[in-house]
Each structure stands twice: as structure tokens, then as C-alpha cells.
Nucleic acid binder design. Structure first.
Lengths: 204, 204
DNA sequence: GTCTATACACTGATAGAC
DNA sequence: GTCTATCAGTGTATAGAC
């Protein structure tokens, strides 16, 4: 059984590692930077996690499962399909709001090391995205929603949910630089509503 | 006046630098990696561009202006507003198709160094996004398009155009892993059409 | 302009005191 | 478990031959 003290330091490291790895990626991140952020010594990083790669793996694994665990709520529900989609929108937007860099981090690291990470992704994602497409196609078959390209719908759907948080820094600079106020113009509720409208228009 | 030989090597470096910087970012990229990619010696990098930072600046500047220059086509045209939007969609999708990492690169680097890059972004973007919002709001005023939140529309619009290319590696793995064929299921034309449908539904 | 050799700082990682 | 000191390897950058 772990002691409270152990958890504290280990989790301090994990939190710091998450922050730094998400910002700079595997190769760009510096162990010193992680240690400073966690307010501990560099050597402790190697004491808890043997190497940079191992620490990164832990962070990446955690990010992946959190990322896809939101999809469970959607897949397991017994609500009507469109209600499930709406609920999923609420959940995923709230999730991104809390972890704005999550999506970017996963995409970027997968893009850089596709082979290395393949198994992890598949393990975490199994029965997630796949099930969503399946459910969509079933819903189209039995007439619950309008017929459309399920894959393309999924892409558009994920785009609308994810990109605003990825590109927030850019939007912020761009809008603020021209007198517009991002904090005022953008809100999670507005975004949710607009994505729901997209669903209504696309799936009827 | 530059000689042809000079341009050749300098551009070889720029191409290689673009590739490596986009993949790993400013801090993750290695000069050796850039030199290898350009098939030249490491010392030559410093001969043409004095430092890593200076080389990065050149790459980032080029990326930014290319990224926003696509918007010019939109802003300067005298076509009806919706036709301009449709033309912009065609252009930006073709552009991302050629430079899939461009959007990610800019977003990521702006996110990491907001202060450092502020002026460059503003210089490159001036009268671009701003003008687009302006044009949209004018179009709503004179009844050419349906009234809606211009900022939120812009976010959704950019999301639909950019994210599919950012997340392509993830989508690819996810779909291929479950029997679906990304290369078959996804095409630029399908994406263009779906975004145009979004425009129709949103702006009437 | 292009290469080799090298200076010098920084990085991940380990040893050893406490 | 936590720290300081330190090593080997790699990184950016420069000097100098051709």
C-alpha cells in the first residue's frame, strides 16, 4: 500500500510532467523544467520514473485514457441517439475546457511516433470511436437520424469540439489585437449550442 | 543579386528546416536533423542563418504569411459573399492538403511564445481575420446572409477547415485499426462539400 | 561556399552522502 | 526519499583549411 507522502511527490511530478510535456512534446521538454515546475530535484525524477521516456509514457497513457473515457458516457447510455450526442457535447467541451492542450498533445505525439504508440492508442481507443461510428450507422439504418457519411460526420463533429481549444491562443491574439474581446465573444455555452445546431442540421 | 546556386542551398535548408521545425517545434528540433534532411553540413546552417532562433524565425514568418495569404483571395474578391466563402474553402483545403502541419505549427508556437511572436502575427494577420469578421457582419446587416454570431461562426468555420488535417494521423490510425480505410473514406472534395453545407445551413 | 575539427554549454542519467 | 556532485553524450556555434 502506498503512503500518502509517496503519492504526494509522485503526483507532483506527474502534474508537472503533464504540463511540460504537453507544452513542448517529448523531445522539446526538459527534465530540469519538469523538476522546477514540481519544485523538486532533478534526480528525484529518475528515482520515481527511471527515464524521460518512461515518464512520458505514463503521462501519455493517462492523457489518452482520460481523453477517451469521455466517450464511454456516450456509448453506454440508453438515451435516444441524438440525446446521447448532445450529452457527449456537453461533456467533451467541459473536458477540453479543463485540459485545453490534451487534444493537441495526443495528436502531435501520435503524428511524431506513429509506430511506437500504435498499441497504446488502440488499447485505449478500442470500442470507442469505432463504437461511435457503429452507433451512428445503426441510427441511420433504423431511421433515427438522417443518412449521411458517418466518417465525415465524425470528423466534422470532432473538429467543431476540439479545434476551438487548440487554436484558442491564436484566436485570442487575433481578436484582442483588433479590439474584439475573446473572453466576451467566446463561451462554452455558445460553442455547445452551435455544435448542437450543427447536429440538428446534419442528422435531422 | 543572388545567384542560382545560392538560392538552391538556402532553399534546401529552408525546406528541411520547415519540415523539422513543424514536426518538433523550436525546442524539440535539432540542427543536426535539419542538416541531415537538407543533405548538407551542420556548419552551413550557421553560415546561411546565424543561429537556430534566426532560422526558426524565417521559417515561422514564411509559414504565417503563406497561411494568411490564402485569406487575401477571399477579402479582395468582388463576388457575392457566399461565393467568396465557397472559393475560400476550396483554396484553404487545397492549401492544408499541401501543408498539413502548417496550422498545428503556428498554433503550437504561438501558444508557447505568445509575447515573443505577437508583433509578427499582427503584422502578417493585419486586415485578414479582422476583415473577414467585418465582411461577415456587413453581410448580415444588409441581409445578404442570415444573422448569427460572427466570431463563433468564424471559429466553427476554421475548425471544420483546419482540424481534419491536424488530426489526420489520429483519424488514420483509429479508422484503419478498425477495418475502415481512411484513404477511401476521406477526400478533400467530400470535406469541401460538407463545409459548404455547413455554410448554407448557418448563413442561409 | 563548403567541409572538418573543435570549443563550450546543456541534457539525461547515475553515484553517493545524508 | 531527497539532496549535491558529477559523468558521458549531445547540442549549438565557431575557427580555419580548402
Amino acid at each position: 500500500m502506498k503512503q500518502l507522502k509517496d503519492i504526494s511527490t509522485e503526483e507532483k511530478i506527474m502534474e508537472a510532467a503533464k504540463e511540460v510535456f504537453m507544452k513542448y512534446g517529448l523531445y522539446g521538454a526538459r527534465m530540469q523544467d519538469i523538476a522546477d515546475t514540481a519544485k523538486i530535484n532533478k534526480a528525484l525524477l529518475h528515482y520515481y520514473f527511471r527515464s524521460k521516456e518512461k515518464l512520458f509514457d505514463k503521462v501519455f497513457e493517462g492523457a489518452l485514457s482520460k481523453y477517451f473515457e469521455v466517450m464511454d458516457v456516450f456509448a453506454n447510455s440508453e438515451l435516444p441517439l441524438k440525446k446521447r450526442l448532445f450529452q457527449y457535447i456537453d461533456n467533451i467541451i467541459d473536458f477540453y475546457s479543463e485540459y485545453p492542450q490534451m487534444s493537441m498533445f495526443i495528436i502531435k505525439e501520435i503524428g511524431n511516433n506513429p509506430e511506437l504508440l500504435k498499441e497504446k492508442i488502440q488499447a485505449a481507443k478500442k470500442n470507442k470511436t469505432h463504437r461511435l461510428i457503429q452507433v451512428l450507422e445503426e441510427g441511420m439504418k433504423n431511421g433515427e437520424i438522417k443518412k449521411t457519411d458517418a466518417t465525415l460526420f465524425l470528423i466534422n463533429f470532432q473538429s467543431l469540439c476540439s479545434f476551438p481549444f487548440l487554436a484558442a491562443p491564436m484566436f485570442k491574439h487575433s481578436l484582442n489585437a483588433h479590439g474584439k474581446d475573446w473572453e466576451k465573444d467566446f463561451s462554452n455555452d455558445k460553442l455547445k449550442k452551435s455544435i448542437k445546431t450543427f447536429i440538428e442540421n446534419t442528422l435531422g
